[in-house]
Design a protein around this nucleic acid. Structure first.
Lengths: 232, 232
DNA sequence: TAAAAAATTTAGCCGCGACTAAATTTAGTT
DNA sequence: AACTAAATTTAGTCGCGGCTAAATTTTTTA
């Protein structure tokens, strides 16, 4: 039986690995809100368990076994998020915190029943892909809303679930997965972004907020022109 | 924040108090499957927290505060049991083990949503009363199936959820809450009991099994005669 | 009622997963 | 290349909630 702590560390390492190749002790400690010394301790334990490779002073990396465990926890987490939203109408910004605790205590059997209830879904309410039972995940390459040029449209695919306040705000603004946004303007130097949502309402998003939204740009005339230009 | 351990101790003490006035260290230790020394340790901690009164060498008793907490845990437990059975079709004999873990990690908000989803139910799938949010519980006085005389009928009100094997067996036999059973015969010296269920099938129950089933006798001619006799 | 048995508590230990303070290694200057 | 700053690890501690062995109290029995 692997403890909730071990599961949380593996999950955190997995998520940090999604952004940067190598995961540092400090990044891990910050992500989990613990001291760096505590992180080192646990890293050594995980290395003993062959769940991570530790290159002292240089970082940590999941082994195949470690990644498998991380994906199991993530599967639990995301299934539970979706289940709470669907079955109990738990609001978007609350499902993460609730799933964070429940993910460690459900049985395989209950996991299967939840997945079945939901029809083996592929995404959680924030647009994060749900790992399969077999231990595989999609790794779609989305673009940050920050990097969408003025005049372009994009479809929201994923919204980071790290900050409940942000999520609450996003849902109020209609910035949820599958929604289309038009980027109206962009201030220089990572300044705020002006967007219009499907309802026609316009909103301003600062850098931090825009960075939490991941999109695929919609293909439209402007984009085509830009593309043909670059070919000349 | 009170730990899962503390919650489990309080719940165990509450349940033991339902049967015997005073709860001994040994009974508590056996119920929780830990050593008596560990139980003493925790009892002293609970006494410091003013959740129990401890009379050394003589036993332990919940304070008002302790009972309130025990009932909160029990409410979680029983709501979760019913929810898993209703929403996910988790079989009768499995909901207890699952609820045993989840009960410690759900928020008040989730508790409320589950209760609402279920329509503020009064009983869990085994017939145990669900404590109210306010911290009150029904304490129905049922009779053990063991004490029903041959020739009498009874309606099952509650089945002890302590043993999943027994539960599985009971459900196969149709011995579930609200079912009617006719007691056909009873061997002396706590010997086995012969019963007929609504479907017409007949089954034999040994003492341990019969002790786990709680009923209210149905009022029929024999019972009336007995009653009028005692008035003479 | 005294001795034996059973129950309970005390004393001391352990693993887990946090922590701080201090030592060490690495990376970034100048 | 040497010095400094930052990152990381080591050393040592703590609370939690288990444990065993030994001491103590209560209960039972002879």
């Amino acid at each position: 039986m692997t403890s909730a702590s071990v599961q949380n560390y593996l999950k955190a390492i997995y998520q940090l690995q999604e952004n940067s190749e190598t995961v540092t002790t400090t990044a891990l400690a910050q992500h989990l809100d613990i001291s760096a010394a505590s992180a080192t301790n646990m890293i050594k334990k995980l290395a003993r368990l062959k769940l991570v490779r530790h290159s002292p002073y240089h970082g940590v990396e999941l082994t195949t076994a470690g990644e498998k465990m991380a994906l199991e926890v993530l599967r639990h987490h995301r299934l539970i998020e979706l289940f709470l939203a669907e079955a109990l109408d738990v609001p978007w910004e609350l499902v993460h915190a609730e799933a964070e605790k429940i993910e460690h205590v459900i049985s395989e059997d209950l996991e299967d029943r939840i997945a079945n209830f939901l029809g083996d879904p592929e995404r959680d309410p924030h647009g994060d892909p749900i790992p399969t039972k077999a231990g595989t995940v999609e790794r779609p390459e989305y673009q940050s809303l920050l990097d969408v040029g003025a005049g372009q449209s994009a479809v929201i695919q994923r919204v980071s679930d790290q900050n409940p306040e942000h999520l609450k705000h996003f849902s109020k603004l209609g910035l949820i997965p599958d929604a289309t946004v038009d980027v109206l303007s962009r201030e220089p130097f990572d300044g705020p972004l002006r967007v219009r949502v499907a309802s026609g309402r316009e909103h301003t998003l600062d850098e931090t907020l825009a960075r939490a939204i991941w999109v695929t740009p919609t293909v439209e005339k402007k984009a085509y022109r830009a593309k043909s230009k670059s070919h000349v």
